[in-house]
Design a protein around this nucleic acid. Structure first.
Ligand SMILES: [Zn+2]
Ligand SMILES: [Zn+2]
Ligand SMILES: [Zn+2]
Ligand SMILES: [Zn+2]
Lengths: 131, 131
DNA sequence: ATCGCACACGTTATAGCATAACGCAATTGA
DNA sequence: TCAATTGCGTTATGCTATAACGTGTGCGAT
């Protein structure tokens, strides 16, 4: 999925996530963007849907929140399985990718004849600073 | 965490999940139990909290729903990392455990000095029957 | 015994997350 | 020009989860 030019709303939502220290809920994004003309949740959700599709943003299922992708590489390709550590103390989220886990999960699902479409890996706990 | 005797409400919620083919949302459970006297969401959520604590039930973060644990063994011990395949077609959920993934995740978090408290692994896709 | 505490339970209200359904405007490509 | 697609705005609604209050019951300590 090549990333097309972002629309005005998509750009505003992307900027809000990029400049945030941690994950943001859709309604928190809405509040941040009210000054810039946002009025309704759908404006945020529609932008998020596209940003997720382009791989610029990830959804954290266990938080009902969203983070900007921190992959170093460009987003011209689907970046395999994404995993996150999420600190309950400071809210810090770290994205990582591990080919060994990806391969192991692939082997396990293949054994079930299960066709994977999306894999969620989220590790809740405390980071080094928040033990 | 040894499992104590379940209370009346906990038993009813557990039975609803055990007899269900697939995962149930809290509100679906509430509807199933209205005949038996349930009136409010908190009755369900309080029971679920305990059942989760006892390890009898798992929460699927990507569905906001709950399933009975299908581990063969008794629940007298914490059963490591739990992973699920979730079929988008038929709703079937399969619970599995893999020590290799557990160890790999453990190594990765240890490298970050991250203290894991709960790990979520959920694989969405299509099962063999629903390709 | 009775006091204090923990715990399950019931109820009402509210907060937080997400989508349905409608209509309008701009773009694109046949 | 016409149809199809896409983005946008608005209102209303639905789904998920918890706050806050009070009741009753069991049980050990005083
Ligand atoms: Zn990423
Ligand atoms: Zn932290
Ligand atoms: Zn289990
Ligand atoms: Zn299926």
């Amino acid at each position: 999925m090549a990333t097309p030019q972002l629309t005005k709303n998509q750009t505003m939502v992307m900027d809000a996530l990029s400049h945030s220290e941690g994950p943001l809920s859709a309604y928190t994004i809405l509040d941040k963007l009210r000054d810039q003309g946002f009025r309704a949740p759908l404006q945020v959700y529609r932008a998020l849907d596209k940003l997720l599709e382009y791989g610029l943003v990830h959804r954290l299922e266990s938080l009902n929140a969203f983070v900007a992708c921190t992959c170093p590489h460009e987003h011209e390709h689907d970046h395999g399985v994404t995993a996150f550590t999420i600190c309950e103390g400071c809210g810090q989220v770290t994205e990582f990718h591990d080919i060994a886990i990806e391969q192991r999960l692939s082997a396990l699902t293949r054994a079930q004849s299960f066709k994977t479409e999306k894999t969620t890996i989220e590790i809740r706990g405390h980071c080094q600073s928040c033990v």
